[in-house]
Simulated scan of single mutants.
Amino acid sequence: MDSGDIERFERDGHLAVRGAVAPDTAAACRDAIWAALAEQGVTRDRATWARPVVRVACPEGGPFEAAGTAPALHAAYDALIGPGRWTPRAGVGGSVPVRFPSEEFPGDVGWHIEGSYEVGGEYWANVRSRARGLLALFLFSDVGEDDAPTRLVVGSHLAIPRILRPAGEAGMSGDEPVTRVRPSLLCRTVVHATGRAGDVFLCHPFIVHTATWPHRGTTPRMMAQPAVHVADGFAIDGSDPSPVARAIVAGFGADL
C-alpha cells in the first residue's frame, strides 16, 4: 500500500485489497459456508434456494483463520488504523449474508452506516467510531455486477462526522445519520464491491452503503462483513495520525 492508496482511501472511503486471500483458502471458506447453510436446509441443489438471502454466522477456524490473518490485510490495517491499535482476531468474524439468484425483494436493502456497539437492541456509532476501525467486505465468491454486490457511496464518509458530532459519546443508531444527510449525497458516484473470490474491500467506518437487488447472476454471492475492532475509537482533535481519523476530521469541514 502506497501513499496514493491512502490518499484515495481518505478521499473515497474505501480501498480494495485484491487477492488478499488465496484462491484455495477462499474455496475452502465457501465449502464451510455451504455446510453452515445445510443446517438451514439450503444445499447446492438449486431447488433449495427458496429465499433471496440466508444469513449465517461466519464460521471459525480452519480456512477462516487463514483468511482473517492474511498478511496483506494486517499490513493494510496497520497503514489505515495504526500498528498496535486494532485488535487481532484468529478468524474473520461477522455474518455472511448469502444472496441467491432471485427477483424477490430481500427485505434488508437500505442506505446506512455500520453500527459498532449495541444500545437497546440496535447497533450505534459515535463520532470517534467507538469499537470499529474499518468495515471489511471479504469476497468468498466471485462477485460481478449482476450478483447483488454491496453498493458504496464514494466520499460519503465525509458527510457523517458533522452529523454524529453533536451526539457526543452516546452516538446514534447506524441508520439515523443517513436520514439527516442532504439528499444529494445519495446522488454521488457509487461503486460496487465486485471482484474475484479472495478480494477484500476495506471501508471507512462511516461510509454510506447498501445491499442491492435483484440478484440476476447464476451462483450465490458469499461475502462476510466483519468489523476490524478498535477498542477506543479515534481522536478527533487533529492529533490522531491514522487515515481513518484524518478522514473524520476532514469531514467536519466538508460541504456535503
Rank of each mutant, 00 (worst) to 15 (best):
R162T: 10
T25M: 01
A90I: 01
D108A: 09
Q225K: 10
Y77C: 01
V228M: 02
A247D: 05
P52C: 14
V230R: 03
I236H: 02
L256K: 10
V200I: 11
G217N: 08
R89H: 13
R99E: 03
E60H: 14
A26G: 03
V154Q: 05
V98G: 09
I6C: 03
D78V: 03
D255A: 15
S3V: 14
R246Y: 05
I248K: 03
F9R: 13
A231H: 11
M223G: 00
A32F: 11
G195D: 10
A79P: 05
M222A: 02
A250P: 08
V190K: 15
F105A: 12
E176D: 15
V92N: 07
D78S: 11
F138L: 04
I113F: 08
A20R: 06
C187L: 15
S173T: 07
R46W: 02
R188D: 14
P88S: 09
G4W: 03
F138V: 04
L73S: 11
A50V: 08
A254C: 10
S3R: 03
T179C: 14
S239E: 09
R99G: 07
A27W: 02
A20T: 07
S184T: 08
D199S: 12
L202S: 07
N126K: 05
A247C: 07
L37Y: 08
R151V: 13
A16H: 03
G144C: 03
H192G: 03
V53M: 08
